[in-house]
Write a protein that binds this DNA or RNA. Structure first.
Lengths: 214, 214, 214, 214
DNA sequence: TATGAATGAGACTTCATTCAT
DNA sequence: CATGAATGAAGTCTCATTCAT
């Protein structure tokens, strides 16, 4: 490359006027919509700018490059999600916390399934994963805190387990999104079965409430 | 033009001379290696041809376009896998069949993890998924046949279940590949737990071999 | 930047077919003409390609980037020049060698003054100077060999002297080019005076060998 | 548009309030520093404004376009220099005047070598050279006045000679700047040799003043 | 059939300049 | 007057694909 100084993917400038804040929001939403509609293949900065009703220059005023846009979008989506996810830590038991987490994830993914799926994918590209490391770490920390609860069987390798849980969660929910599912209850139940199974939480008499023993 | 006429993705010709067959194989392997090394980002037809030691023209002789190349590669990888996977149907019980399937999948993915992951992703792109529908259907049929065995709890929606199983399988194994894992046993066990859990197969005394009761 | 791997400025590929050789030559000549006409400001790869009657792609097939094109052009011009310049070493005396060098330089610069001037400037840009280091070194070596001749006063710092000689040579000839001069004899004489003066070669009876006074 | 309407390059307004004067000075100094640091390549109006701590808008308040900024900078640097250079005319002899001029030039160039070099180059761009014609003429007039002194050999073409002197002067001093030299004495001596040589001022017994022969 | 040179649409990005606040 | 957000023309470069040899 001729002029390829590696640039930060962080937003270029913090908007100082409310007009700018609006512009940034508009651009992000436009990006989201393009991503939903045409996927990463069909997304390009000119199109995003056009759809946002601004010049390309404006886009580059706030995002140093295309990837930074994706990162920002990921973060925007992640922010809401993370706040809700943290609520899981208030649950009394590990299992309830996990259910909470699942519910939140399912909810998040089902709100804008196409977008969520597209981002899920992009987030794995090294260039981007790198930028998102912090957010990702925060989310994983939540999981870790759940896993150490008393009612969750101890896991040999926390790292691996965390990765796996996230992967499975995403996999099922993404697949659901792809099929256009919208029944949250069913989806949550399926995810739960997989995750609980993975964790070795055997629920021998799950469905039928037992009558009191003599 | 970059992406103009929609063309068939099927290989342009079935090579009938062994020389041609050899060429196709060479190209495919080159594509595989490029995919492994540089990911989809870094893969391009010129590079693949060069690495294969043929002119780009030759590549286009056998593959009408880039996607066709990916499809063919997917199929090549899928073929071996599918044969082994079919073996699962010979297992006496559903659970054993599932274990068999898992073992085969894990084995497959761990052979060339980077390639497998890259393909997993590409296979979801609509243009490609479409072409791969048949192979995918065949694989899913195997799963279906396993799921109807007596020792597997009946599933409400076969379609969904199948999708989910595949998704979870891939998710965990891909994550493992990404981390560079290579312990097949551990990986199989984790996948099993998730899948069996998902299917509602509770295994109340799984790990510790019980001592004979008096 | 996102994709800015620093690329070599060396030509990308050696043309293997004579058609390609022709293309490269055409592109270079087009670049030369654009440079002459519009200067570096007005030169851009699209224009060069258009003027050469080829697609931009072809340009980038042989030159990884714009700078590489400049470098190649510099080298093309330098090659002829250098061969002639080396001839100076065959001159019997240092002063004659220097005159030879001056004559050659003047000749070179006056052939395509605008081009020569434009290149002179570009060659100082660090990115390019770097690539041209070898050629430059070779030329300076010629000068060095001249400077150590017996009839040239010893110089304190060879490096500096060499630089200065080249700088002065260029400066005067470029200025002449800018004014549209074409009288080689006069130009050579002016340059000689400056260079010989710089070197401390006093030529008390320069032009007409005086006959002994009575 | 990038380069559309040809506009006057003169500063848009003569600042009459000291605040404005201050702003202009700040902008010019910022431009100087950017030019020194990043060269013309890396200089752009937004950056200059930012470095000056003003909005781009303000920059355009005082300079109708980028070139006007360069011109103004050139003039700022030239002004000091010119005043000092005029002092040469007070010298008793032409040769002393020339030495004076050389000393002043060397001094000027060595104060901010990077800036001086960058400007030297820019000043040759036609768009700018045009605006600077007046200043340049004034400087050349000084040289002309020196050249007609009795102790300077008559020159055939005053124009050419003047150009050449300036070119040589610049060439050597720029080269020195590029190498990071800082020994003014040595530099002045080298320049003198070249210029005096060019003018045909032979200094047959330069160093040791010979005693009169019998 | 094989080759690889040629193509050009289109993606990304920059930066001089304008203008509403 | 100052500001800085917005603009978009223009330039650089890539890569899937074609086609003459």
């Amino acid at each position: 490359m001729t002029k390829t100084k590696r640039q930060s993917l962080k937003p270029r400038k913090i908007p100082q006027q409310s007009r700018a804040e609006q512009t940034v929001a508009t651009i992000l939403e436009a990006a989201a919509r393009v991503l939903e509609t045409k996927g990463m293949e069909g997304m390009n900065t000119n199109l995003v700018a056009q759809r946002a009703g601004v010049g390309v220059g404006s886009l580059y005023q706030y995002f140093p490059n295309k990837d930074a846009l994706i990162v920002a979008l990921s973060m925007r989506e992640g922010a809401v999600f993370f706040t809700e996810a943290e609520g899981a830590l208030n649950e009394p038991t590990g299992q309830k916390a996990l259910k909470h987490l699942i519910a939140v994830s399912v909810h998040q993914q089902l709100r804008r399934p196409a977008l969520a799926r597209a981002l899920d994918f992009e987030e794995n590209r090294p260039a981007i994963a790198n930028e998102l490391a912090a957010s990702k770490a925060a989310f994983r920390e939540v999981i870790r805190q759940i896993l150490v609860r008393k009612d969750i069987p101890p896991q040999l390798n926390m790292e691996t387990t965390t990765d796996d849980l996230v992967a499975v969660l995403r996999a099922i929910v993404d697949a659901a999104g792809e099929r256009g599912e919208s029944d949250r209850g069913d989806l949550e139940s399926r995810v739960s079965r997989a995750l609980f199974g993975y964790l070795g939480i055997v629920d021998c008499q799950p469905e039928k409430p037992q009558r009191a023993r003599k």
